[in-house]
Nucleic acid binder design. Sequence first.
DNA 1: CAGCGGGTTG
Length: 561
Amino acid sequence: MSQKHATTLIKSLCARGAVRHARALFDEMPDRDVVAWTAMLSGYASSGRHREALDLFRSMAAAGVIPNEFTLSSVLTACRAAGGGGAASIHALALRRGVDHMPYVVNALIDAYASRGGGDGLVDARCLFDALGEGRTAASWTSMIAGYARWGQENTGLQLFQNMIQDDVELSPFTCSIAIHACSLVGNLYFGQQIHVLSIRKALGANLAVANSLVDLYCTCASILDARRLFDEMPERNLVTWNTIIVGHSRRDPLMAMQLLVNMDIEPNCLTLTSITSACAGLSALRCGQQVHGAVLRRNYGYDLKVSNALVDMYSKCGNIFNAKKVFNMMTCKDILSWTSMIGGYGMNGYVNEAIKLFNSMVHAGIHPDHVVFLGLISACSHAGLVDEGWNLFRSMLLEYNIQPNKEIYGCVINLLGRAGRLREAFILIDTMPLTPDEYIWGALLGACKMHRNLELGRLAAGKIIEINPDAVKTYILLANICAADSKWGEYAATRVLLRGTGSSKEVGMSWIELSDKMYTFSTADSSSPQVSLADEVLQILVQHMDEAGSEFIDNICRGA
DNA sequence: CAGCGGGTTG
């Protein structure tokens, strides 16, 4: 077999995925010219085996074979995949061989530098890009734009995209979807829509990646209805399409997310199931959540970190702490989210001591806590009335873990103190906190004043809230109630008049319960449905039973067996 | 005989 034939065969073996066979053939060749080496190198590089590609490149140098522009562009692909680290030395080599200006080599260099990221990588890439001038090709533009988008400089990338369009460079679906994705990362709906129009004009709208990135853009930056319209119009959908629309709905319309899953005509993957699990958590739909758990196990996704995290969170939010713990304990590797979900789960279900114990285990495991963990812990203490524990956590957050509390945490601590009646301390904390208190912080104090009938501080807090947001309806009602409780009827009436001035009525808080796959919603003192009156009767009976059986019975219910 | 870029979902 001639050397040319062998080289052709190496290429086609690699193209079919038989890289090992190609290597065996390569090793048997009596002499290998630069073309044979390059074919083998490129085979490795384009199948993701950059380690082998770089090793082969070294062997080639050791064998005294001089690389040419073909070799260098291939080896740059491997550099890029390996993080772009060796790009500079290949660049030097290209200069020495006088091939540094050949289009494939420059483009590969731009891409390798841009993939290295950081400040330098992009600057180096941009230097080469600018020096190209009229010699720029679509590949140069795309590498540069993708580099910016990948390293957090989306707007620079979009600027470049605009220049590319002005330069009349032919737009590919690849570049188009990268640019749309950049728009959705920075929340630039307007530019994204312009690209949408452009993509239709250039007949790229039917491309799946383009359409998918548009669905994502509308999910993140517009209303999910817009996203949904586009989704419904798509003649063809793949798993990414479905996942994009389901993920887009899972937080804002979890019920619709479930409906979409039901309509899905292809096999879901673990991302699908993760976001459906969150949808169940958002709905506290335990039975659905359990079915999804079953689907997860059947597909062997049980060991996926994100799926497990979502399951722990779902069971916690559905009040089934037993299963949450079971999933959590089964996890072989845990990240901070796993711990947060479990700690938060204990907290929100009233198991403060377990939460604190687990928090200590987490710290012991070397995980540095964050705001979310502390929020879960302190709010658990607040609900359980453990003022000192909560306060100590708040202090240690600052002193031991060096985390600056955010407004949410302050709000929580105000609640903690307020519930315990320590209104003065709560007020002082608001007064001395390094952040500007918002209506929610003052709202927490006002709520506590209502609870403990403190008219003086309540008036103050209400005044602050109305200053910030005159339409905060709840404020007037709370203040009015405090006045009423203090028999200040004149002020009560005045406050009610103010309330009418906002032209709004307080929205009704709804509760709901899932029974036999049906969801029932109701509000306080709702006598509109027969189920509610029935539930009321049952509740009376239960209360009677609980009185009789005492705390042991309550304990059992709480453990949710 | 061999070579570059680049896609959308958490």
